[in-house]
Simulated assay, not measured.
Amino acid sequence: MHFDFDAKVAGPVLHGPALEAPEFDAPELTPLTKPLAEASVGLIVTSGAYYPEQMRLGERNDLSYRLLSRHRELTDILFAHKTPIRQFGLADPNVAYPRDTMVDLEQAGVFAHYAENAVSMVGSISRYEELATETAPRIVDEFAGMDVDLVLVVPFCPQCHNAAGVLARALERRGLPTTSLTTLYRHAMAVKPPRATFLDFPLGCPCGRPGRPEQQREIVRAALETVAAQGVDEPWQLHRLPFQWDEDGSRDWEQLVVDLYRVDDQIRGTVRGNLGAHGENLSSINGNEKEFAIRCAC
C-alpha cells in the first residue's frame, strides 16, 4: 500500500492530469568502496532549504544550488519550495533537511563523517538534460572536494522525485555512489534512482515525522544501512522501510496531505502551473528514455 498522489491530489484537488514519470532501466552502480561505518556521507535535499543571507532559490527549473554548512543550526532555515507540504518542514526542518539527524548519526558511529556542506535545490525541475549534464558534474566536484564516499538524496515534492532521481543516476554514473530516501512509490519505481529506499509517509516528510527526532534517526539510519549492504550486481529494487506514521497503522495522514494541497489557493495554483510545465518537458523524454540515459550519462 502507498499514497496515490494522482488519484487523491492531481485530479480531484489540482484538476489536472496525473504527474508523468520517465520509465528508466535499472541504473549502473558505482561501488561503495568503504564500509558505512568508515564512510563520509554527503546530503542533497530538494526542499529549497537556504539561509536568509543566501539568494532565494527559484520556484521552477532553477538549476542552481546552495551549500548549507553542517555547523549552522536550523533556527534560521528557510524553504524556497512553494509546495503545500512545506508545512511539515516549517514545523520541523529536519524532516526535509536532516542536518541534526546526520550530525547525531555521525556521533553515534553509524558513519564516519557527515560532509562539511549539504547541497540544497528546489527539485521542481524538468530541464532534465541540463540537470544531468551540467549541474550533476558540478555537484560531483563539490562532494569530491569534501572527500564524500556516499550521498543521501532526499526528494521532497512529487516533481522532486523525478528530478532527484535523474540527478542521482547522473551522479552515480560519474563515479559518486548515491542512495535516495523516497516517499512517492510510483515515481521511484519508474525513475529507479540508485539504491533507493521507500518510506510510506506523507510527502514532505522523507526523513520522519515532525517532532520525533529519535524516529528520524532510526529512519535515516535504516535507509543508509539498507543500501550500504547492497552489492553492485544485485537487481534493482525499491527497499521498503518498516516504519509507520501512526503506531496503530492508521492512514489518516493521507487526508492530511490532501487537505494541505486543498487549503492554499495561491500555492495550489503554483503547483498546478508547475505540473503543466513539467508535463510538456517530459514529452521529450517519454518513449526515449534509453537514448536520454545514454546521452546524459544517467
Rank of each mutant, 00 (worst) to 15 (best):
H2Y: 10
F3V: 11
D6V: 08
V9S: 08
L14N: 10
G16T: 15
A18P: 03
L19A: 12
P22N: 13
F24I: 01
D25Q: 10
P27D: 03
T30C: 10
P31M: 06
L32Q: 03
T33Y: 00
L36C: 09
A39H: 10
S40K: 13
V41L: 10
G42Y: 14
L57S: 04
E59I: 06
L63K: 03
R66D: 12
S69I: 10
R72E: 15
L74C: 14
L74W: 12
F79H: 11
K82Y: 02
I85A: 08
R86K: 14
L90T: 06
L90E: 12
A91H: 05
V95Y: 01
A96S: 10
Y97H: 13
R99G: 11
R99D: 02
M102T: 06
V103M: 07
E106H: 02
A108F: 13
A108W: 15
A108T: 07
H113Q: 12
Y114R: 02
A115I: 13
E116M: 07
A118I: 14
A118Y: 00
V122T: 14
V122I: 14
V122K: 03
G123W: 05
S124Q: 14
I125S: 07
R127K: 11
E129I: 01
E134V: 15
P137S: 12
R138Q: 14
I139P: 08
G145H: 11
M146A: 08
D149H: 04
L152D: 08
V153T: 07
P155K: 06
C160W: 11
H161T: 10
A168S: 15
A168D: 05
R169C: 13
L171N: 08
R174D: 03
L176I: 04
L176Y: 03
L176V: 08
L176K: 08
T178Y: 02
T178Q: 11
S180L: 12
T182Q: 04
T182Y: 05
L184W: 15
A190V: 03
K192L: 07
P193R: 04
P193K: 04
P194S: 06
A196Q: 09
G204Q: 03
C205E: 05
C207R: 02
R209K: 13
G211P: 07
Q215L: 12
A222P: 09
E225I: 01
E225L: 02
T226K: 09
V227C: 08
G231F: 04
V232C: 04
Q237W: 05
L238E: 02
L241I: 09
P242K: 04
P242D: 05
P242E: 03
F243E: 00
F243S: 01
F243I: 00
R251P: 00
Q255W: 13
V257Q: 02
Y261S: 14
R262P: 07
R262I: 06
V263Y: 04
Q266S: 11
I267Q: 03
R268H: 01
V271I: 14
G276S: 12
I285E: 06
E289Q: 08
A293W: 02
I294F: 15
C296E: 09
A297E: 12
C298D: 04
C298Y: 01
